[in-house]
Design a protein around this nucleic acid. Structure first.
Length: 488
RNA sequence: AGCGGUAUCGUCUAGUGGUUAGGAUAGCAGAUUCUCAUUCUGUUGACACGGGUUCAAUCCCCGUUGCCGCCGCCA
């Protein structure tokens, strides 16, 4: 059996998209499962839209997701270069082979002519297929057009290739995830493989690259199905071995349209900025189409690889809903150690002065705040009241519903009196507060109302982390200062 | 329009020619807690429609409909 070699070939015209990340994941899993190689190729032939920043983003995102490649632009490999723009001089040779074999021909049509033909087709509600009018140009005709200054593009002759390798006009292949797929090649137009400016088109460059890089399996989005038929014919015309293809359903936004900016984050790096963990993201995206045989959904990429079978992937589209991703992210946050959390939360606390807390206090703060986090960035709001020294921002409902009540004022005054002599350790505060709540309970005030008063005064909120721990972390002075300000 | 794909709870999915159609998430209810959250328990909720084939169809076939994709000298 020949070596399994798969590839991911992103075009650096944007940051790494989650859809691309999922395609990369399934390729990676397939390679892992079959002891194969995972290749990264950058398809940057469209110089206008390409930028180094995007290339860096693709590298960084893939690495962050744990999808490390065996061969690629940075690490090299036996079939390089792995950046398409550096491969420009190898394409013309294969165009010539096709020309020589009669599977391709020069086309002198101008964009205007083609545009007119398309409009005509649209007017008649007919699907547009290239007319092949340049297929049988004589040498004299070509020479004449050349003299006029026209530069030809090269078109692939679909009918010729189909006829040479197949009995009918129907072209079929066995898709790894969808089963048998077929198309009537008579409905396909002869497409351009080399532009008049000498640059290869996508469909051609991909075939040459996949062929030369000995790619054995092409796993990609189902938006490529129609390209696949064209590509198979090129492989055959070149006498190359045709790889196996597998087409994945697409990821859709909740409104069933293509996942785009207006739905929020689309790039992996944007999710990371928002506070998602890459482990959670990749786990979530794996579950779009794949499901674990043991029912355990929280799994690392390596664990998934063991259980992965390409033919078991769902072939339908799936919708990207945040509910489950959020839940999953929370699960991954809870799996992090306190030390890790302390580091990973820091960027989201950058607007505060961390020196207000000792390391010990910071540790405790993390311990009492991390559990309910859905996103790492939630900490920005959730931990706000640990900072700001003697003052804290009082939220409207905390003021109106709590601090403005007579009960709260009574509680706070009593607290100031009694707590004056308390030993300010968390353990002791825990005991003392319990007794304190007991006192008020006897007066008919519910424990939670008692605590609300203290919480509102100290944190400016009606909800939050463990109140005893908060007081201990802030210390007596800051706590008292804040309560004093709340008393009328 | 044409061609191709696809259809199980809101969402992600498991599953089978005879099942109480399973799980996860979200929702709802309850328990726990000083609060919210977390956590735990319980619970609502699905085989798109119409024809076949069959003793029997969610499952196989055909059609309809919905949705998605493709129809570039973009990738």
């Amino acid at each position: 059996m020949t070596e399994v070699r798969v590839r991911i070939a992103p075009s650096p015209s944007g940051n790494l998209h989650v859809g691309t990340a999922r395609t990369a994941l399934f390729n990676y899993l397939f390679a892992k499962k079959n002891n194969g190689k995972f290749v990264l190729r950058i398809e940057d032939t469209d110089a206008e839209r390409t930028s180094q920043a995007y290339i860096d983003n693709i590298f960084d995102s893939l690495k962050a997701l744990g999808l490390n490649w065996d061969e690629g632009p940075d690490v090299g490999g036996p079939y390089g270069p792995y950046t398409q723009s550096e491969r420009f001089d190898i394409y013309p040779k294969y165009v010539q082979i096709l020309l020589d074999k009669g599977f391709a021909y020069e086309c002198f049509c101008t964009p205007e002519e083609l545009e007119a033909e398309k409009e005509e087709a649209a007017k008649n509600k007919k699907p547009y297929v290239y007319t092949k009018k340049c297929e049988n140009l004589t040498n004299e005709e070509k020479e004449k057009l050349r003299k006029e200054g026209r530069k030809p593009a090269i078109r692939f002759n679909i009918a010729k290739a189909q006829k040479a390798f197949h009995d009918s006009s129907i072209l079929k292949f066995d898709d790894l995830v969808k089963g048998e797929l077929h198309v009537d090649t008579d409905l396909l137009g002869d497409f351009v493989i080399l532009k008049s400016n000498g640059a290869p088109t996508y469909n051609f460059a991909v075939v040459i690259d996949d062929m030369l890089m000995k790619i054995s399996h092409v796993i990609r989005g189902e938006d490529h199905i129609s390209n696949t038929f064209k590509q198979i014919l090129i492989f055959e015309a070149l006498g190359a071995e045709v790889p196996r293809f597998g087409h994945l359903g697409m990821i859709l936004a909740p409104d069933r349209s293509k996942l785009s900016k207006r739905h929020g984050a689309t790039a992996v790096s944007e999710f990371v900025e928002k506070g998602y963990l890459t482990d959670a993201l990749i786990n979530f995206v794996a579950l779009l189409g794949w499901s674990p045989s043991d029912g355990e959904e929280i799994k690392s990429v390596d664990e998934i690889a063991k259980d992965f079978r390409i033919n078991e992937i769902s072939s339908s589209n799936s919708i990207f809903e945040y509910d489950k991703l959020n839940w999953m992210n929370g699960q991954y946050i809870k799996k992090l150690s306190i030390d890790e959390l302390k580091e990973r939360l820091k960027p989201y606390l950058a607007k505060y002065d961390l020196s207000e807390l000792t390391d010990e206090q910071y540790t405790r703060m993390v311990e009492i705040t991390y559990e309910p986090l859905t996103l790492l960035s939630d900490i920005t709001y959730d931990a706000q009241y640990f900072f700001g020294g003697d003052s804290v921002e009082i939220e409207e409902n905390a003021q109106k519903d709590v601090l403005d009540t007579d009960t709260a004022q009574d509680v706070l005054k009593a607290f100031m009196e009694q707590a004056q002599n308390w030993e300010w350790t968390e353990e002791n505060l825990h005991e003392k507060l319990e007794a304190f709540r007991g006192e008020f309970k006897e007066k008919g005030i519910k424990p939670k109302v008692t605590m609300w008063a203290i919480r509102a005064a100290v944190t400016g909120r009606t909800r939050g982390a463990d109140m005893t721990a908060i007081l201990a972390i802030l210390g007596k002075e800051k706590s008292f200062a804040r309560i004093k300000k709340a008393i009328k």
